[in-house]
């Protein structure tokens, strides 16, 4: 059995910024428990001597010359905005502080 609990799922919901109902927390707890039991087997073969692969095809030093290209226009930038004011995006009050 894995360690998935309703409290953990609720915490993950906060980290992922998804408001979860109690019913969803309960359902997800059960489902994640089963899924995690099934995928935890990766640790069976992931011994310390095996290197991790983050990129399927290894490349390095891919750069862009420092030459400006036309940016989006302000109109393009704002065209999908749920709400805009003075050329900027509007969000409701912010409680927490920046990181």
């Amino acid at each position: 059995m894995s360690e998935i609990t309703p409290d953990l799922v609720r915490h993950l919901g906060v980290l992922a910024r998804i408001q979860l109902t109690d019913e969803e927390v309960e359902r997800l707890t059960g489902q994640l428990d089963v899924i995690v039991d099934n995928i935890a087997k990766v640790s069976e073969v992931a011994t310390p001597d095996v290197a991790a692969t983050s990129h399927p095809i290894p490349l390095e030093n891919v750069f862009r010359p420092d030459v400006p290209q036309a940016p989006l226009t302000q109109q393009q930038a704002l065209q999908n905005a749920p709400e805009a004011e003075d050329g900027r995006f509007v969000v409701t009050a912010i409680l927490g502080e920046e990181q």
């Binding site: 004011e85 969000v91 912010i94």
Partner: peptide, 8 residues
């Protein structure tokens, strides 16, 4: 603050 404006 009532709301905030974002400039990217």
């Amino acid at each position: 603050a009532d709301h905030s404006l974002v400039d990217y």
